[in-house]
């Protein structure tokens, strides 16, 4: 899988990657390892991991799909901030 190749290049195992955030361009964000969604609006999406959290800011944000700990956020992403 794609994430396995990345972990392998960094030399880390999956257990040390409790969450992943992939930013594709400036309009798509893929987040893995989500425990809960704390806030969701068109300008801000906040999620929590097992350790820490993530805030995606922008405009017209929409969670296209979420489930199984993975979320796909689409919109005009201005920033991704880790807690």
């Amino acid at each position: 899988m794609f994430i396995d190749e990345i972990l392998d290049r960094f030399g880390i195992e999956d257990a040390f990657a409790p969450f992943t955030v992939n930013i594709i361009g400036n309009g798509h964000v893929v987040i893995s390892g989500i425990k809960s969604v704390t806030f969701s609006s068109a300008s801000e999406v906040c999620v929590r991991f097992s350790k820490g959290g993530l805030k995606v800011t922008g405009e017209n944000l929409l969670i296209v799909q979420i489930g199984g700990g993975d979320a796909y956020v689409k919109g005009d992403v201005k920033g991704v901030e880790l807690d």
Binding site: I34, S36, V37, S40, I63, Q65, I66, G67, G69
Partner: peptide
């Protein structure tokens, strides 16, 4: 508090949102 709803839903199924 749609965040909580989304969290609960995402735990049991895969949700696709529309604009």
């Amino acid at each position: 508090n749609r965040g909580r709803l989304i969290s609960e839903l995402s735990r049991v199924t895969t949700v696709k949102f529309q604009p």
